[in-house]
Write a protein that binds this DNA or RNA. Structure first.
Lengths: 210, 210, 210, 210
DNA sequence: CATGAATGAGAGTTCATTCAT
DNA sequence: AATGAATGAACTCTCATTCAT
């Protein structure tokens, strides 16, 4: 169903970014073609170059939007409590929920981390760091208040987001594997249950035993 | 230094697989060209097609070798003890050591998991499952012996390998980020220290409090 | 320095033609983009299509202006004397001076002549012919008055304008080549000196020896 | 009539260069597409990139061959006589004959000279200089022997090659213009006649009057 | 076992041109 | 008179793959 041309720059741009996001996450940067994105967006390929310098520029725009969004979502929920334990819970649960509701996100992030950021300009690392800084802050305050043991924040961070992201990206794989009854791949597990289990374990790890 | 032609099928094949491994891990499947691999291996491009059906076939050969190797390494160290806690320690430490010594491995695995195995035939999942089964077995026996709490093995598995793999693949990124003193990205941490910290935390999580 | 919009059709048009002239002469017709011209002129690309039918139309406008200008300049100086020798001198010197002062001109003309006029409608040849007719007329009258030998006007014409144009367009090349001391490319020669030398030689060629 | 693939590297390469030469000369660098050349040569487009790095590389190969050929042709005929006047005659006549027999050549050269060598690496200028050096040498020896007046070699060079090249490239134009009887564009002139006229004039110019 | 020559299909990018305002 | 949004057609270049030797 060919739409009439939109003559609305912002809307068109948003539509392109949105479709690019889906495709980049499903197939990765290299395997996604500019034609794919243009086709999915119902616009002419050249328009992508009108708005974004090139394929990398579009990818950058996608990642900027995505990283900002997750940061804002998590920051919004996990700060403002004055109890580090509650904040930790919010961090884990919000990230999990966001990842579930925006399932393109984990693959994008995980690939970028596997690539040492081959496709991203340095500027983008800052955005990744901001998310990490959120957790680092929670742990630091928890430690200051004597409720958390000293921790290696980077490792804890990857225990949380590595696990959650992998649970999302491997969902189809785990479903297939479930047909083989030898192993339980948690194929039926709800994201909420997983996140809660993860949160409880992380809390156990971190809390000073009383 | 141009080598004389080798006239030794197995050695040539091995050399190709080895170079392919490095390149696939560094740049990913799509961004690695058959020319790259042939060039790095010092053989003619057509020879790759003589030995392997096609690019995917070569990739499959690489992954088979890599997944078998890690499985054997980990299985060799972590089984045969009759103490689940010792076995868990061996599992974590061996995986960590392997990942450090074969740094191409984490990127390969992580990408594959982010992709829902787009490049791998189903047969390959079996090999991944075998590694997971190792841990599942340890946890199951630990639970049977009353030393471990019931656990969601899949989540624990990802907490371990997700974290270790990410620590390896992000090493360059974390080093860069370290110049920004606001966050501690554990840039200087040794893999051993990380693995030990991880192991201790996982153990704390799993152990029945006495 | 962004100018306020001009709302002055003729001035805007002239500005566009002027910038197009520079760019066409520097890079040729194909290598000059409509965006280049619009950008250099500080106007929107669509405006070029409003004023000129298309890229070729703009090129035509440029060439019309340029060919008219050189014709008028040369005609103004070289006619009206009743001495063919003086007129010949004026022809050569004026053309040389014009080419030097409007250095975009020689490249434009030379390219057009190398192309068999691929970009120009036939109408344009008439303008080129007019310039040639000027010289033809001088020679014819000189011959009638017994001061010039019979000549092949076309060849003499190209000896003059070919040489002068090439001296202008190759100026940068000749400067570079001058660093190589084996050949003297006349890199430092002033245009006046060159024109005078050329004129004297042409005169020697043409004059009836007395 | 699709030819069977040739499997003869040198022959194929030569065929490509030859077709490229024709097309570049007819339409210029920009207006000639790689598809054109591949099509005319009856080979796959990718083969051009297999043999030549890119379009510019192919152009360079063409120009190398062309400049070497003209130099060798002219050098072969114009040196070895010990009379500068005879050598000058050979220079002009050989160049003229070559230009007539290889009509792609003048356009290629003239365009390059109009462009300040935009498409050519510096290395190529050397080849152009070699041709000029040939004439320079003739003039120098003539002057030493007292048969030629001191001359500005660069100007004389352009009087010769500029004129001859323009007569070739403008041939179609001059034929069209001939329908307009007001001017005589020498449309019917044979190249030999032109060259002879040119040579005689140049000789008159240069010779010391006795 | 190993190679250089050759190809088909497609990818990213550019550009002249038009539309709607 | 002037503009930003949008397009279609081409163009350069790359790459996995095959052929012939």
């Amino acid at each position: 169903m060919p739409q009439p041309p939109q003559r609305n720059a912002e809307a068109t741009k948003a539509k392109i970014i949105d479709n690019a996001m889906q495709l980049f996450s499903k197939k990765g940067f290299d395997a996604t073609t500019v034609d794919d994105i243009a086709g999915a967006s119902g616009v002419n390929k050249a328009l992508l170059y009108y708005y974004f310098k090139n394929k990398s520029g579009l990818y950058e725009a996608v990642m900027t939007q995505v990283l900002d969004a997750i940061h804002d979502a998590v920051a919004g929920e996990s700060s403002g409590h004055d109890d580090p334990v509650t904040e930790l819970e919010a961090f884990v649960m919000t990230y999990a929920r966001y990842a579930q509701e925006h399932p393109y996100f984990p693959a994008l992030l995980l690939r970028e981390l596997s690539d040492s950021g081959a496709h991203l300009p340095e500027m983008m690392f800052g955005k990744m760091r901001r998310l990490f800084a959120l957790l680092g802050d929670i742990l630091k305050r928890g430690e200051a208040q004597g409720v958390f043991k000293p921790a290696i924040a980077m490792v804890v961070h990857f225990m949380i987001i590595g696990t959650l992201n992998l649970m999302v990206t491997t969902a189809p794989l785990r479903t297939i594997a479930a047909q083989n009854d030898a192993v339980d791949t948690c194929a039926e597990c709800s994201m909420d249950k997983i996140a809660e289990y993860l949160y409880n374990n992380i809390k156990t790890m971190l809390e000073v035993n009383t």
